[in-house]
């Protein structure tokens, strides 16, 4: 019996095995789920999309690296969360957002959205949405200007007019304006399903294809990475409220940032509730505020603020939906 062999064995507390899931593994699945939409955007928009992605991802990771270095904290960029934040921010911005504006957004997302709170796990709000909100509030006019491109009414228009030559307000903005003016719509909402699902060059980068976002979201649900209750509550409520306002529920789910928000933004672990029940409530809340912003407020693109608002309520929802301890009857508490 050689003692040296015994020495090598590690003595540690149980459990002595762990699941294969890791933080970076989870983040990489999120990236993989978003990749089809990002790639499809690059294919259709070319360099503008690449530039936006490179700037937000680069600045997000760079900011986190620099923060850690200056604060003399262990480096955390390999956990993958900064990569996800950068990617999400790019997908939530119009492709023609000036590069410096995207850079500021990514810096704010990481610095004010995450690091000031103490880094990953300690932030109250979704960092990417903090960055997007900052950009949207600071340069609303600029964003509105660059957003006004890319609506073709049906998929057949794409071949007729190139991406660069199309211009006009997004169909969501037009729909909102139509509703405000007449209570009805000046164009066929159902005819919009196909371009919205497959190829849509208006709005933000991630709106390129609702179908690819749904696919990515489905993968994350099947892999057990996100809880279906959040997107289901979100999308379901969005649809129901749209219907209640006499509008087309499918159009309102597919148009704008709803799907990106429901599958990828609202499901951010850190800023969403923990319990199943809490997540359903939270998803419903996101959908409700998003829909109210669209139909009542003058803000068709209310996804960012709806989710940020619910982020703020998440701790309260957590407190309201604490699990019942085994063997404890409710009246005992």
């Amino acid at each position: 019996m050689s003692d040296s062999r015994v020495q090598q064995h590690i003595v540690g507390p149980s459990p002595h095995i762990t699941s294969k899931a890791t933080c970076s593994g989870i983040m990489l699945w999120v990236v993989a789920a978003l990749a089809p939409a990002a790639i499809w955007a690059i294919v259709n928009m070319g360099l503008v999309a690449v530039q936006l992605l490179v700037v937000t991802i680069g600045v997000a990771i760079g900011t986190e690296a620099a923060w850690n270095a200056i604060a003399r904290r262990p480096q955390t960029i390999l956990d993958g969360s900064a990569l996800v934040t950068g990617l999400l921010l790019a997908l939530a911005l119009p492709p023609r957002t000036p590069w410096w504006m995207a850079a500021v957004g990514a810096f704010i997302a990481i610095a004010l959205g995450k690091m000031v709170f103490g880094g990953l796990g300690h932030n109250l709000f979704n960092p990417a949405l903090v960055g997007r909100a900052f950009v949207a509030l600071s340069w609303a006019g600029v964003l509105a200007g660059v957003e006004n491109r890319g609506w073709f009414r049906t998929l057949a228009d794409v071949s007729a007019e190139g991406y660069d030559t199309i211009s006009g307000a997004t169909r969501l903005a037009v729909a909102t304006a139509d509703r405000a003016a007449s209570g009805g719509y000046g164009f066929d909402l159902v005819a919009q399903y196909e371009p919205l699902l497959l190829k849509n060059l208006e709005g933000s980068l991630g709106e390129i294809s609702a179908a690819l976002l749904i696919l990515g979201g489905a993968v994350l649900i099947i892999k057990g990475i996100i809880d279906w209750r959040i997107p289901a509550g979100y999308i379901g409520t969005m649809g129901i409220v749209s219907w209640a306002f006499g509008s087309d529920p499918v159009f309102h789910v597919l148009a704008g940032g709803v799907l990106l928000g429901a599958f990828f933004m609202a499901t951010d672990y850190v800023s969403s509730p923990m319990s199943k029940k809490g997540r359903l409530i939270y998803g419903i809340g996101c959908g409700l505020f998003n829909a109210l912003g669209r139909f009542v407020g003058p803000m068709p693109e209310s996804t960012t603020f709806a989710i940020l608002f619910m982020n703020g309520l998440a701790p309260l929802i957590d407190r309201m939906t604490r699990p019942r301890v085994f063997g404890v009857v409710k009246s005992d508490e």
Partner: peptide, 12 residues
């Protein structure tokens, strides 16, 4: 030294 990312797995 690792943070809780509030993934919800442990309470589940």
């Amino acid at each position: 030294d690792q943070p809780c990312i509030r993934c919800g797995r442990c309470p589940e």
